[in-house]
Design a protein around this nucleic acid. Structure first.
Length: 154
DNA sequence: GCCAACGTTGGC
DNA sequence: GCCAACGTTGGC
């Protein structure tokens, strides 16, 4: 059974437009350095799962489009690259600490702003909206997923 | 730039 | 294992 996720990305780094323009319209979701978020990718995500593509740390934060998970979970090469901002000197080469799935473009939508989401009773349970929630990957229930779809245009 | 919330680190 | 210090996130 398909599951649903919300994945945050800074549009400066990887926006929904970047995703649409990428080879195979797919991007590796590298750079996650939080165990909870990693565990979602490693243990729970399945190819075909639905993704709300969320723009964060930008003038207009919000859901910018839809994507889907493509597998498999694989080691994140950036952890071993000293030149990368995601370099992790403590990650053992034979037992990589960090990994990633990839994400494939489904469609771009009109931005559903965070401010709007906050006013929607049907979205009140979203983990994203919980005070202090910073996790870059959060699960979304089927009900929440449908509620967001209903709000997305077109 | 501010700041609250949260995660990680490291001394003990 | 505790917990204070520190770093990061991310909206505003």
């Amino acid at each position: 059974m398909a599951q649903y996720w919300l994945m945050k990305s800074e549009p400066d780094e990887a926006s929904i437009d970047h995703l649409a323009a990428a080879p195979d319209q797919t991007l590796p979701w590298t750079g996650v350095r939080n165990y909870q978020a990693r565990n979602f990718m490693r243990d729970a995500m399945q190819p075909g799962d639905g993704v709300l593509f969320y723009h964060s740390s930008c003038p207009q934060p919000g859901v910018a489009g839809l994507a889907e998970v493509v597998g498999p979970y694989a080691p994140d090469a950036t952890q071993f690259d000293p030149a990368s901002p995601y370099f992790d000197p403590k990650s053992p080469a034979d037992k990589p600490r960090w990994g990633h799935v990839s994400v494939k473009f489904v469609r771009k939508t009109a931005l559903l702003p965070l401010a709007t989401m906050r006013t929607e009773p049907t979205l009140a349970s979203l983990q994203l909206l919980k005070p202090g929630s910073r996790l870059s990957i959060t699960p979304v229930t089927p009900e929440e997923w449908q509620a967001v779809l209903d709000l997305l245009e077109p």
